[in-house]
Write a protein that binds this DNA or RNA. Structure first.
Lengths: 117, 117
DNA sequence: CGACTCGTACGATAGGCATCGTAGTACGAG
DNA sequence: CTCGTACTACGATGCCTATCGTACGAGTCG
């Protein structure tokens, strides 16, 4: 379902076969990025960068989204001025069956354990 | 000899509740450490540091084992001159059910995909 | 005791990275 | 065209880390 409405700006994504486990783990080992991924998984839809209210500046937010994209965890598409972010669930599940769910479950358990919601 | 075998040297380990998902993911995001953990899981037994034939110096090897221990992934015990390393499977499975297996499976799939053993 | 093995400690180095601020670009609305 | 919004690019900074080499401590065995 690739929408044809792509602005002139194209963002480089790794192909499915180029995604490396170490890269994914490194991307998710940052609390800020894990939080982003958890939120994306919760809504199972695309979200704009500005939707996230992270305790860092916009520059840093851009950096984190790029790390997630370049590691193959999320897909980013420009839609007007907004940049939509979606989890690459199909690719990740295809490469590493059960991993994403296990990671999300682990993150959720830890959040409960540490008193966050 | 099955003595209490607690040499004077004791190594600090995080308690189960202190293990953080981010720390575990960071520890496993290094190829050298992921390799160590895969080998430990394969034999499901304790292995001495010297058993591993890593393409780095002994200093660096020590460093990696310490990262794994301090993140809660492995347990280290001195046994004579040797230092035995074992996966903390019980603790990890207790905190994050299914995560370790999913990670090991993902690593194995990637190894196959990339033509390594 | 002395020699040998296993692993550590410490210092150095080079690169990576999370963060910021500022200046700038792309896009849509008025 | 102009303005505001959304996001980026770039440079700087301070911290972390993977790596090495060398010197050392702990334990075993002759």
């Amino acid at each position: 379902m690739t929408s044809p409405a792509v602005s002139s700006r194209d963002l480089p994504h790794p192909a499915r076969e180029e995604i490396r486990l170490e890269g994914v783990l490194h991307a998710l080992s940052d609390p800020m990025r894990l939080r982003i991924v958890r939120e994306l998984a919760a809504v199972s839809d695309e979200l704009s960068c500005s939707h996230f209210d992270l305790p860092v500046t916009k520059s840093t937010t851009t950096h984190h989204f790029r790390v997630l994209r370049e590691s193959g965890v999320i897909r980013q598409i420009y839609r007007g001025t907004a940049k939509m972010n979606g989890l690459r669930r199909d690719d990740l599940d295809g490469l590493f069956p059960g991993l994403l769910d296990a990671l999300l479950d682990a993150a959720a358990r830890q959040a409960v354990r540490l008193g966050s919601t």
